[in-house]
């Protein structure tokens, strides 16, 4: 690891009733890299995301973001620190236009005291919003109700909203799921560009092997709630344990 860790998870465990979703998971996301997280369905990937960003309290273990222990913080507090997640089921504000979705995602909204809550937003926000809508190719549709956009376009909008928020670390839950294969290449390019150009560290859950092998600097593999393997894409691809987990070998 050449860079210092931006996110560190130490021995995190989470169970729902008798179901152990995560058991003693430890991982490190180095600053400025793209880290992939793979695993068969039900292996606990989304649960891990939810515990990291504070949706589910941890049973035990610690989460450090930029060296700060955050496992007791609430979702919005963690988001304001600069760690953001997108959702597997795309979530945008469907009753608002694309532009409004972008404006409301500005990090300026994080500052909410009595004087700022009632004010407008400076013109820089609009400029940035236009740039990012252009970046994901939704500029022409910026004044349409975002609920009327296609699923793939909503995914792109959600991604643009995340970028608008200027996070330090972005957790993406299956960014390419449900997206037309021809659009996927464009999305990979944009993810890489966001990482290089805007300096955002990415931690990506992805089912599509081609995508994750292309994208990630290193990959973690979960199975049955346990950390199965960690390594470079090539190593993971040829790891017998990973292959067994995916193909269901006993």
């Amino acid at each position: 690891m050449k860079n210092k860790a931006i996110l560190e998870v130490c021995n995190s465990s989470k169970s729902f009733g008798g179901v152990i979703a995560n058991h003693n998971i430890s991982l490190t996301v180095p600053e400025g890299e793209i880290v992939g997280l793979i695993g068969p369905n039900g292996s606990g990937k989304t649960t891990l995301f939810n515990t990291i960003v504070g949706t589910h309290p941890l049973d035990n273990g610690e989460v450090y973001f930029e060296g700060q222990e955050i496992s007791s913080l609430r979702v919005p507090e963690i988001a304001r620190l600069g760690m953001l997640r997108t959702f597997q089921q795309t979530r945008i504000y469907g009753g608002m236009t694309g532009v409004q979705n972008m404006r409301i995602s500005s990090p300026l909204i994080h500052d909410s005291n009595f004087s700022t809550m009632f004010s407008g937003l400076p013109p820089e926000v609009d400029e940035r919003s236009d740039e990012l809508l252009e970046f994901v190719g939704l500029y022409e549709k910026r004044n349409l109700m975002s609920g009327d956009l296609s699923f793939g376009q909503q995914k792109l909008l959600e991604f643009a909203m995340a970028l608008m928020n200027e996070p330090k670390l972005l957790l993406l839950d299956e960014p390419t799921a449900g997206i037309n294969p021809t659009l996927i290449n464009g999305l990979i390019d944009r993810l890489k560009l966001a990482n290089e150009k805007f300096g955002i560290t990415l931690f990506v859950i992805e089912h599509n092997m081609r995508v994750v092998m292309n994208l990630a600097d290193s990959i973690y593999c979960l199975a049955h709630g346990e950390m199965l393997a960690h390594g470079l894409p090539d190593e993971i691809q040829n790891d017998q344990k990973v292959i067994d987990a995916y193909l269901g070998a006993s």
Binding site: V75, Y93, M96, S105, P107
Partner: peptide, 17 residues
């Protein structure tokens, strides 16, 4: 409006809902 459309999302974006 954001709270109306998706309050969980608004929280996840760091808004003081």
């Amino acid at each position: 409006n954001a709270i109306r459309d998706d309050e969980d999302k608004a929280e996840a974006m760091g808004i003081h809902t």
